[in-house]
Design a protein around this nucleic acid. Structure first.
Lengths: 235, 235
DNA sequence: CCAAAAGTGTTTCCTGTACACCCATGT
DNA sequence: ACATGGGTGTACAGGAAACACTTTTGG
C-alpha cells in the first residue's frame, strides 16, 4: 500500500468533560488516572482513539465505558495539540463536553474506576492541560446554552420549571427572575405540560414538563434567547 | 523515554478553507494537488502537522506558504477523522476557515502553486471529504458572522458601508435593507469614520471607515445582532 | 390562618424592522 | 436639471426586563 513518506504520526486521544446536575449544582465527573505518568492524580475521562474509530466513536466509547451511558449529548469543541502537552509522547487530544442525566449514571462504575463528582469550585488540580480544558468547556457551555436549549440534556425525562431554572442559575452563577424565566421558557414551545406535580420542594407543587422532541430537533440550530443579558457573561 | 505502548499513532493534517471577497462576491481559494493520490485534482490548502508544531502553527504555516499572509483570522471549527477518509493512510484533519483580504494576497504565489479563486457555486469537485468541509465551513461562517464582527477581516483597512453590506449579502445570499444596515453597523460603535470618500461607485461618494481595533477586541465575544432575521438561515 | 413557593398579569422600555424622504454630486 | 446611489428620519410592533399580585396547600 502507498504511504505518505517522511511524515511523523502522533497519538490521538479524546478527553471528555462530563457535566451533571444534582438538582442544585452543576458537577464534573473526574477519575483518578490508572496509568503512568501521573498515576493516581485526577484527570478527565479520556482514552486513545483506536484504529477503525472516528473521534466521535472514541468519545462515545470512553463515555459508555466509564458511565454506562449511550446516546449522550456531546459536543466536540476544541483540539488541544501543543507539542509538549503530554510529557511522555506527543499526543493530540480532541476535547468533548458531555451532558448527562446524573440519575442514569451507574454508581457501580463510579466506584470501580475511582471516579467522583466535583463542584467546579472544589475541583482538584488536574494533569497536563486538563484544567484549561475544563475552563474552556465551561465557557463553551455558557456560550452555547445561551442560544440553544442544550441544558435539558442534564435533566431527567420529566422536570419542573424551578428545577430548570436552578440549573440555568448554576451554569451562569446568577439569580434569574422566576416569573420572566418561566414565561420565556414556556414561550419557546419546547415544553409539554404534564398532569402530575412535584410536591417535594413546595406546598403548592410545581407541574412536571417534558421536552417536545420534534420541536426541539427542528429548531435546534436557531438562535433562542434563553438567558437574560447574556453579554454580561462574555465581556 | 517512557512510551504509551500498544497505541497506534496516525497522521495529522490541517486543511484551510480560505475565504476572500473581491468587492462583489465571496470566493474560495483552491489548489491543484501536487502529490499522489488524486494528483492534479482540486483540493483545499492543507499540509501535515510537523513535530514541534501545534495545529494552529501548522495552519498558519500552510496559509503563509500558500498566500504569503501572516496574522490572518482563522477559526478551528471541526476535526474530520473518519477512519477511511484518506485512502492512502489513516489521516486526521483539523479544519480551519480563514478570512483574508484578497488585495493583500500575492498573485505570484497563486500561479506558482496552481491556485485559483472560485465562486462557491462554480467550485469543482474536491478530493476526499473536502466538499463536506467547505459546506460546513460556509455554514459556520454564517453562524459566527451573525453574532460576531468577523467579516471585517475580509475587507481592506478602509472600506465603505456599501462594500460591507455587499459582503454580508454575499455571505447570506440575500438583500438587506440599506438604511437599516448602515444604522445598525454604526450603532455598534465599531466603526471610525474617515474624512475621505470613495467616489468609484457613486456620484455622491461613500465615506471610508476603519475598524476601532480596541473596541473590536474588547467586545468580540459578546453577542451582536448583525444580520436581520438570522434564524431564517438556520431552520 | 399563615408561610412558602408557583406561576400569571401588567407596564415600561428598547430594539428590530419597514418605509419615506432628503442629500450630494458627476454628467 | 436629473439620475444615482448614500445616508438620516420616523413610525410601529414585538420582545425583554422590572415589578405586583393571586393561587395553592401543608403545617
Amino acid at each position: 500500500m502507498q504511504k505518505y513518506t517522511g511524515e511523523t504520526p502522533v497519538l490521538v486521544a479524546v478527553d471528555c468533560i462530563i457535566f451533571g446536575f444534582d438538582g442544585w449544582n452543576i458537577k464534573l465527573l473526574l477519575v483518578q488516572r490508572n496509568l503512568d505518568p501521573e498515576k493516581g492524580k485526577w484527570s478527565l475521562m479520556g482514552g486513545f482513539m483506536q484504529p477503525g474509530e472516528s473521534p466521535d466513536d472514541a468519545a462515545n466509547r470512553v463515555l459508555e465505558h466509564r458511565t454506562g451511558l449511550k446516546n449522550v449529548y456531546m459536543d466536540q469543541f476544541r483540539v488541544f495539540g501543543g507539542p509538549d502537552r503530554d510529557p511522555v509522547e506527543r499526543t493530540l487530544s480532541i476535547a468533548y463536553y458531555a451532558l448527562i442525566d446524573i440519575n442514569k449514571y451507574e454508581k457501580q462504575l463510579n466506584d470501580d474506576h475511582h471516579a467522583e463528582w466535583f463542584l467546579p469550585e472544589e475541583m482538584p488540580e488536574l494533569i497536563f492541560d486538563h484544567n484549561e480544558m475544563v475552563k474552556l468547556a465551561r465557557r463553551q457551555l455558557m456560550y452555547k446554552a445561551a442560544l440553544h436549549p442544550i441544558l435539558f440534556q442534564l435533566l431527567p425525562e420529566k422536570f419542573t420549571i424551578p428545577q430548570l431554572q436552578a440549573l440555568y442559575e448554576g451554569v451562569y452563577q446568577t439569580k434569574f427572575d422566576d416569573r420572566n424565566f418561566s414565561r420565556k421558557l414556556l414561550s419557546t414551545g419546547l415544553l409539554i405540560k404534564l398532569a402530575e406535580k412535584d410536591k417535594q420542594s413546595s406546598k403548592k407543587g410545581a407541574f412536571y414538563y417534558t421536552l417536545d422532541q420534534s420541536h426541539y430537533e427542528e429548531n435546534f440550530e436557531s438562535f433562542l434567547n434563553l438567558v437574560p443579558n447574556p453579554n454580561k457573561f462574555f465581556q
